[in-house]
Design a protein around this nucleic acid. Sequence first.
RNA 1: GUGGUCGUAGCUCAACGGCAGAGCUCUCGGUUGUGGUCCGAGCGGUUGUGGGUUCGAAUCCCAUCGACCACC
Length: 364
Amino acid sequence: MLELIKKNKKTKQRSGQLTTRNGVIQTPFFMPIATKGAVKSLAPEDLKALGAQIILGNTYHLWLRPGTEIIKKAGDLHKFMNWPGPILTDSGGYQVFSLGEKIKKGFVKLSDEGVEFRDPIDGQKYWLTPEKSVEIQLALGSDIIMVLDECPPYPASREQVERAVKRTTEWAARCKKYFDKKVSKKKNRPLLFGIVQGGVHKDLRQQSAQELLAIGFDGYAIGGVAVGEPRKYLKTVLEAVLPLLPQDKPRYLMGLGKPEEIVAAVEAGIDMFDCVIPTREARHGKLYIKNSGAKGFYKTINILNSKFAKDFTPLDKSCGCYSCANFTRAYLHHLFKVGEPLSLRLATIHNLKFYLGLMEGLRK
RNA sequence: GUGGUCGUAGCUCAACGGCAGAGCUCUCGGUUGUGGUCCGAGCGGUUGUGGGUUCGAAUCCCAUCGACCACC
């Protein structure tokens, strides 16, 4: 499944090829986020031109709208959105976390059986279980399916984290059982990934990893590391978990991160990333610029700043993406100021190129 | 020409005798498995002008300038 081609002797960094039923992906890699069936503001042609190998879709959002019936009628999510390449789907587990406030207020009910959500738009109730999550992801035609997990908030008491680890393991086992029942022995089967929880506690992280390893998955994700905890714990978590994971299975660090965090995680032995940073920040005018100085390998600019109004240079002279090859900072500044939708596309293309280029460099 | 309404931040307006405020704009931050065109902070005033009444006036009175409305 994961064929390692290169390993760094000094660090734990590795590169290789991950085979999915929809194509081979060079690792390590970054997945642009297409929550509701589109990388916001981009068309599949843009993603291809950028060299995106795989994108991430979201079970929760696509379940609510348009729903699995419509996507099934289209064939699957690939056909529906005209993206033939690999797709990883998140399970809806993160929503269990992000709806935390509403859980406290009783709007959302969380139990061992599953989670009861309410559609924020029309108020309709939805009942998400580990089995249901896998069922939806199979219906979407996902190539990498994530188990439903419980991602505790930070800060959380040790008892809360212990409960989340226990529930995550139980849910992972139920996902695996349901998955095997539905796709066992089938050729062209998608991959199923487990998710390690355990907060900032080294022993709970290791316990979680070992319980998942006993069940057996095609890959292992580390979740709950982008939920507000201080960054210093990232190193602790990676050092605790990664040595336990098999070399021939991909490791996925969920939700990260800033460029320097990704570099550090790759050096620690991570193969897969997803993050809203490049796309979301692009839509708010924050652009990533390569830097060769002593202050780090990149900097960011806010294209909305007035100093760019008369700056007729490319966004980044050394970039060469579609936006940099054809437009100036002054033009993009103007597009943002007047709210032209093209601003979102040009900025998103540029930031994704920065992230995807970063990954390309890390593979060499 | 006569009568009336109204002039407060760049814009739209609030405060109607007791510390001149809000939204937008503007300037600058933030965003980590996307419920996000979002969130936060800051700049910005001789209340059209000139007098008067009052302990105190954006607020009441007089004059004046300007805008708008109605009637001649």
